[in-house]
Design a protein around this nucleic acid. Structure first.
Length: 109
DNA sequence: TTTCTCACA
DNA sequence: TGTGAGCA
């Protein structure tokens, strides 16, 4: 049972942050969840597709947000998109997000 | 025990 | 992309 960890991990927060706010996963956990190998996750980090925090002994800590991003990345890779291409997609997605905010501001005026 | 980096196939 | 060595 690998999905068990994710749910029990929320209880570990103590109830203060019981939601998906800031749970961190180890590279092994993320690999299990996404069904990929740890080296693959490291490649994604090296390619700047995800930027996990570093904790304690320099070990990667993936937030819930990173895992979601990884899910999107996996979809793209399965469609044949290369890592540089995915990086571009994420970059454009961010730009779209920023433009959406701009549009929202303009509408509000 | 797990993860780290580096290197190789 | 996956595996192994050697270390913390």
């Amino acid at each position: 049972m690998t999905d068990d960890d994710a749910s029990s991990r929320t209880q570990q927060a103590g109830g203060l942050l019981e939601d998906t706010s800031a749970p961190f996963y180890t590279i092994g956990q993320v690999a299990e969840i996404l069904g990929m190998q740890p080296p693959a996750l490291r490649r994604l980090d090296e390619q700047a597709i995800v930027s996990p925090e570093r904790s304690e002994g320099g070990q990667r800590r993936y937030s819930h947000d990173e895992v979601q991003r990884l899910r999107e990345v996996l979809e793209l890779t399965e469609e044949g998109v290369t890592l540089p291409g995915i990086r571009k997609v994420l970059e454009l997605r961010q730009q779209v997000d920023e433009l959406k905010e701009e549009v929202a501001e303009l509408k509000g005026q």
